[in-house]
Design a protein around this nucleic acid. Structure first.
Lengths: 236, 236
DNA sequence: ACCTGAACACCGTTCAAGT
DNA sequence: ACCTGAACACCGTTCAAGT
């Protein structure tokens, strides 16, 4: 599908072409397409190179290792996460709750669009520029809205736990839709085989309920740690 | 370390030994040891067989595929998760909050003991017996404590999101401890290079704060969905 | 029934050779 | 500088052969 390049493009010969056939961005973009379409296991260097119309080892002129490549794919995905809501916090706008909710929805929507890469995303920020941009935005916004720094770190972490966890384990979809699995073995799961069919609704409502509960709980904590008033953000 | 079997054990010859050298349980146990010690990537059929003192293909007399083997390893880990607290709910004991908290701690402690397998655990219950036992226990307990069935499904799912997410992305540990990564690029992450050193404390306090917030929020919701009284559990 | 070595179709990665 | 094919040390899995 992507492998049909003309002789002109290839410089009419083997070895070095007139103009580079590859670029890091093109490789990363093709890898994401492949991950989305066929899963992480489908991304082998030979297969990916094939999609790009080159031979396997060519990739190593642009990426050091496959791991680094996957990392770049993850970073490209994280680039879609909106953190602009945090920049508006501070001064008269202290509505961290609305910002956190909007960010969580954006984060989740991004991961839901690329489910096959989520297990890698969830492992931690690493050195990925967009992961750090996100952490920076969340932390900065929370502090500007009045959260003490130590608390802001925790809130950023726990929100990430919830969002990545929900994107990863699409709860309902994991249950077999074969009723005989449950019979007589699990006394309360008599209807569990129906979960698969309703999985999207269940996952979404579980996310919505969990997000709401989390924010309600954090609101109580915010009042406690800021002594109930709207104390200014602590200085570093 | 595990590969030194005597000639007696091996039946003094190749081919079929007097007594089986392998069993499914022994393979699964060895795989878990290997995963814990060296990570998921270290588990290849040849390497694992080597640890067990046999040749690679021997494993296929006991497991159908490597995927099934890893699934069994995950199930063995999930076997350590305590769900007994849910069995006590119902009748006069409606303290679902305490049960949920104790379960979440047990779940998290189990995953923390086997961090390398968490990415697989987090993907969903599948057909793994212990995953279904856990889902059954949580759901049954919540319903017995008065949660409507639809809500109980959601609460079980969202709790799992939070616990697996927190076990997966050890937030603080993911940040590089190299200060130069952040300089001038991320305005609020000036101290982020210190996160790695405090990672255990941060992860644990983020988990504790998040769990508390979640339970506080769910308490509000419980009151709303049960109309403020202690209405009996709905019948199926 | 349960193990073996040989073999198949793959991997990620290195490297000398080509332009 | 940027591509190629050949090669290396691996994979998961199948299978005929052995007891």
């Amino acid at each position: 599908m992507m492998g049909d390049r003309t002789a002109v493009d290839r410089g009419n010969a083997v070895a070095r072409p007139r103009r580079p056939l590859l670029s890091r961005d093109r490789i990363v973009a093709a890898a994401l397409v492949l991950v989305d379409a066929e899963g992480l296991d489908a991304v082998s260097t030979r297969r990916l190179a094939n999609e790009l119309g080159v031979s396997g080892p060519s990739l190593y002129n642009h990426v050091a290792t496959k791991e680094e490549l996957i990392d770049s794919v993850v970073d490209a995905v994280l680039g879609e996460v909106d953190t602009s809501m945090f920049a508006r916090l501070g001064g008269d706008d202290r509505d961290w709750r609305a910002a956190l909710a909007a960010w969580a929805e954006s984060y989740r929507a991004t991961l839901a669009a690329h489910p096959n890469i989520v297990p890698v995303v969830a492992q931690g920020p690493g050195r990925r520029p967009h992961a750090l941009r996100i952490a920076d935005g969340v932390f900065g916004g929370l502090v500007a809205a009045g959260w003490p720094r130590r608390e802001a770190t925790r809130v950023g972490a726990l929100m990430r736990y919830f969002v990545t966890g929900s994107a990863l384990g699409s709860f309902a979809g994991g249950f077999p839709d074969d009723a005989t699995v449950y019979e007589a073995n699990y006394s309360h799961l008599g209807q569990a085989h129906l979960l698969a069919a309703r999985q999207q609704e269940i996952n979404e409502s579980a996310f919505a309920v969990g997000l709401g509960a989390l924010l309600d709980g954090l609101e109580l904590r915010y009042r406690a740690v800021t002594s109930g008033g709207d104390a200014p953000a602590q200085v570093p």
